[in-house]
Design a protein around this nucleic acid. Structure first.
Lengths: 179, 179
DNA sequence: TTGTAACTCCGGGATTTCCCCGAAGGTGAC
DNA sequence: GTCACCTTCGGGGAAATCCCGGAGTTACAA
């Protein structure tokens, strides 16, 4: 449940979640299998190795995967232990989500999403809101043809096929909420 | 952070989140102020009254607000205490999100959305996925005209204007995830 | 039995919108 | 200068949309 919530949070900010594990054993196996760009790890896990041990294990096995550790307890000792074990960041569960997103962003310096020009982003918003090419052209005082060109570039850059994809992409990027 | 995740999870299923509180005091005040349709309550909260106490307090004050309690610990005594205090459901944090959604659905019996026929729901899915009328007609072995009829009915019933609205509606109803 | 209403299916025809092709001017980098 | 990119635009064909309209089925009520 909590994992699903976090997953949605991450997806809403444009991150893809390639795997989930409910315990330390599974986490270790999954990291080896999926080679993710980043690992989000809860210190407290049921049975088996806890977050600290998973972190240490991964580092011992040579994985450089950035690790962001989440903890329910705000104790300096825990923080230092996590960092010492090899974690890149330590975030409290009680902290606002911006803390987590900042920590992830800091730990993921090189990831980039397709780069859209200002005009393309603008038109993406309108398209995803459901406006037709003609409406958008009117608002921006350009021709329908120009809007179509930008739309085509959006499809190309984002690898999308249709407007529904565009809506989902915009939602996943946090442009707005579905409801 | 966790609250934001849960919020997204709920929103992705069509529920609106009208308020959030980080402790028991604030929760009590917010429920009185906002009169929500349902209260999602963590048993463990920092300082002040915990989830059990908040539940009991609300019932003593005459609030009939359905309460779904979330707990990290799978102990029968806790479950019984929560129910006895007046909670409508008890869900474990480790449980899959469907448990939470089921519990909420059970506690919110009277909420309804527009009634779609089987065919309409089917076509809504395809439309929201981004398929064209022609594709859908081919898949379902019906004519494009029929697809258009169902689409028109969907717009009428749901009060929507365009396909983007349809996508957002489908997402908000949990037909699929945006990402 | 006879409406009658809802669902599902389909067509014609006019209109609008979308989509794929190419292309031209401007800007900035090398 | 050349090259890449952004932004702008048009032609032409495909698709979707928006008006109508009707027909067969089921189900339920008068």
């Amino acid at each position: 449940m909590v994992r699903t919530g976090l997953k949605l949070l991450l997806q809403s900010r444009g991150y893809g979640v390639v795997g989930e594990a409910s315990n330390g054993e599974a986490a270790l196996a999954l990291v080896a299998e999926l080679q993710p760009d980043l690992l989000l790890l809860d210190l407290a896990m049921p049975g088996g190795p806890d977050g600290l041990q998973v972190t240490a294990q991964l580092r011992q096995r040579g994985f450089a995967t950035p690790i962001v550790v989440i903890s329910m307890y705000d104790e300096e000792a825990l923080r230092q232990a996590a960092i010492k074990a090899g974690a890149n960041a330590f975030v409290l569960k009680q902290a606002p989500e911006t803390d987590l997103l900042d920590a992830i962003a800091r730990s993921l310096p090189t990831l980039s999403s397709p780069i859209l020009t200002a005009r393309e982003s603008e038109i993406l918003r309108w398209l995803a809101e459901g406006y037709g090419n003609k409406d958008i052209a009117g608002r921006l005082n350009i021709s329908v043809k120009t809007v179509e060109t930008h739309r085509a570039h959006l499809f190309l850059k984002l690898g999308l096929q249709n407007r529904a994809d565009l809506v989902r992409y915009a939602i996943s990027q946090g442009f707005f909420q579905p409801g």
